[in-house]
């Protein structure tokens, strides 16, 4: 076991999402810190069970959207009202009703792209990114619970293994990942 360059994980493999969620609750009750769970699909209620805070991406989306609105209104006002005013159909040069469609579209565009960009950056996703996959079957039909032994030094790995098995894990493996 090399001290700083690698991490040891206990990888519990579950067959069912409800079993995993129940196991997560029980394991945390026992004071075991869970590193992460890797699942083929999002499990409703899992964030609560694991104690993950609700994502703040909606706020990011709102801010990006507001930026889009401001950008659109400013752009149209400057172009139509000041830089090159044109009399079109006898309407005022910069008539607010005319703004509605383009302002709406740019709001949506900014909000969507900004939020998705934030998501990719925050989650470390992107072309070429290779996030830790402890058991490739997560993307098929297995529900993986990973426990970082380094952050559970006070607990006996054998006991945790036993606990996971008793909670329904079909297999429990140890995996060493070098950084």
């Amino acid at each position: 076991m090399s001290a700083t360059t690698s991490t040891n994980y206990l990888v519990g493999v579950f067959e069912d999402d409800d079993v995993l969620m129940n196991a997560v609750r029980k394991v945390r009750e026992q004071g075991v810190k869970i590193y992460e769970c890797f699942t083929p699909f999002p499990i409703h209620g899992m964030e609560d069970a694991m104690g993950i805070k609700r994502s703040r991406l909606p706020r990011a989306a709102f801010m990006f959207g507001a930026t889009g609105t401001t950008f659109a209104i400013t752009m149209i006002t400057l172009m139509m009202g000041f830089d090159w005013p044109m009399n079109i159909g006898g309407k005022p040069f910069a008539a607010p009703p005319v703004y509605i469609p383009v302002t709406f579209e740019l709001t949506v565009l900014f909000a969507a792209l900004g939020m998705v960009g934030t998501f990719l950056v925050v989650s470390g996703l992107g072309p070429g990114s290779n996030k830790l996959v402890l058991d490739p079957r997560f993307s098929d039909d297995k529900f993986i619970m990973a426990i970082d032994l380094g952050s559970n030094k006070n607990l006996d790995p054998a006991k945790i293994t036993e606990l996971l098995k008793s909670l329904g894990a079909s297999e429990v493996n140890t995996k060493e990942v070098s950084e």
Binding site: N87, G90, K91, P92, F93, A94
Partner: peptide, 9 residues
């Protein structure tokens, strides 16, 4: 203010 912005209106 609106109407001032353009003559016809």
């Amino acid at each position: 203010a609106h109407s001032e912005a353009n003559g016809t209106k």
